[in-house]
Amino acid sequence: MILTVDRVTKWFGEEPSRTYALRDVSFAVDHEEMLYIVGPSGSGKTTLLSVISGILRPNDGTVTVEGKDIWNLSVDALADFRLHTLGFVFQDYHLFPRLTTIENVAVPLVLRHVRWREALRKAREVLEVVGLPEKADLPPPRLSGGEQQRVAIARAIVAEPDVLVLDEPTASLDGDTGKRIVGFVKDRILNAHRAIIVVTHDDRIYEYASRIIHMEDGRIVAPAEAVA
């Protein structure tokens, strides 16, 4: 298993007004797996994503990635873990509008202290993978929503992470574009060394999932179901 979540609980506030966002959540993800975490708004999907990304500390339970309990790491080691092990595609992409597309893609490499020239060379290669080499020198605001999504994916995979995390990847896209993007991720990005976790409530893209976890009120309400 590349990632294991074991009895994770997360609450906000103190008794008696304590709110549980996650209760005893456990699951695992293997290499070459595209796991969907689905459920209605407020079900705890985003909180779970933050906990397994090393961003939000759980109150109880463990998250193990590549055999390492990430919540035993120091703050800087956690930052290094995210930089070297995870790739993020945020719902709003969070691209830098003042940088060009290729510079946006190169950001994770720059944070890894790769030289700018080398980072740009690698970023160009990845832009070719996502089919946007001709847009390399444009700023993100001049790209369509689908193109921006692909730039965000390129940025997420440029440092070759073990786990790719996609937060609501189709939320800002029309139906066809969303399906095309997710299909592209499954066909071109998923491989034997990588797992992909997708948080979504868009049932139009369920067909691309390896397994689906349903959440409600902070719990997994249905065991992971295999789709593909």
Binding site: D80, F88, F90, V107, L111
Partner: peptide, 16 residues
Amino acid sequence: DNLERFGALKAIGARS
């Protein structure tokens, strides 16, 4: 103006 992007950098793995 760049707060969320700095947040994104932090999430990606930039140290404080």
